[in-house]
């Protein structure tokens, strides 16, 4: 390894770097490559046979659909929440702002049983919904609710710093040039927020795709109906169908890495966008 330009005065590079690389390899890289190695021992046809069953396809469709819906809800409400928390002062704001991180902090199993009980027909919210004929727990709606919960901080926390940085003078200028408030928002503010909004959406979507703990309780876990992909992997493991579990897990991993790449590109775009604006 070379240092660029500067002379290395501080000690410990070899030791810390060595430990970092060894630990990273043992805990992350070797286990991950084991999974891909196992998956590559299957032929494409075998993988196709596993993924193309109606049960797997239903699980993929549900996981993507529900994650997309939840990330969408979070994009809309997350934008409002972030805007309100940055721009307005009101009683209880600090508490709400601190609470936004709750889905990061609360164990998923705890969130899972709490949401399920709340939305079951006897629960506080499920009872209200049942009266208007909506069933939430043990349906796809319940899955979307759980995924909205766990994805909520992503959009808010990516948007807040960007909203904070918008110069009021830009809005002032827009208003001074005769723009209405909604025009200023739509043509001046929103384009500035778009990269961060998309990043938050992608982060929430990626998190929702892999989520397990908060969903298993509320989903009811009916094959073909309310079975998400992580649960399908779990079931395959419990049935000792290691090949099936490996193939589905590897396919999901590839998708998450592609999402990670997209998120990095979005963030890069966001930074560049910001530098220009």
């Amino acid at each position: 390894m070379k240092t660029r330009g500067q002379k290395r005065i501080l000690p410990g590079f070899g030791l810390t770097m060595g430990f970092t690389l060894v630990y990273l390899s043992l805990i992350v890289l070797i286990p991950l490559s084991t999974l891909f190695l196992k998956a590559s021992s299957l032929s494409l046809r075998e993988i196709g046979d596993i993924i193309m069953t109606s049960r797997s396809l239903a699980a993929y469709r549900l996981s993507f659909g529900a994650s997309f819906a939840a990330a969408g809800i979070n994009a809309v409400f997350g934008l409002i929440v972030a805007w309100v928390l940055v721009r307005y002062k009101f009683w209880g704001k600090a508490l709400l702002d601190g609470l936004v991180d709750l889905p990061f902090a609360l164990p998923t199993a705890v969130a899972g049983i709490s949401l399920t009980t709340l939305y079951s027909e006897k629960g506080w919210l499920g009872g209200v919904l049942a009266e208007v004929g909506i069933k939430a727990a043990y349906t796809r709606l319940g899955i979307v609710i759980a995924l909205t919960f766990i994805g909520l901080p992503f959009v808010v926390r990516t948007l807040q710093p960007v909203i904070r940085e918008i110069d009021p003078e830009v809005e002032e200028a827009s208003a001074g040039l005769g723009a209405r408030r909604w025009q200023t928002f739509l043509y001046v503010i929103f384009p500035n927020l778009l990269p961060a909004l998309l990043t938050g959406f992608a982060l929430a979507f990626a998190r929702a795709l892999g989520e397990y703990g908060s969903v298993v309780f509320i989903s009811g876990n009916m094959p073909n109906k309310t079975e998400i992909v992580p649960l399908l992997i779990m079931t395959k493991f419990e049935e000792y169908d290691y090949a099936g579990a490996t193939a589905i897990a590897a396919s999901m991993l590839v998708l998450s890495f592609l999402l990670l790449l997209t998120i990095n590109l979005l963030q890069w775009w966001s930074r560049r966008h910001h530098a220009v604006a």
Partner: peptide, 28 residues
Amino acid sequence: KFEFRGKNILITLIDLPFTVSPVIAGAM
């Protein structure tokens, strides 16, 4: 504290466990 080539890749690799679904982590 130090400059070296591949620093950004290393940071991305350290973050990798966040992108892996917990179920898949257990499966590995």
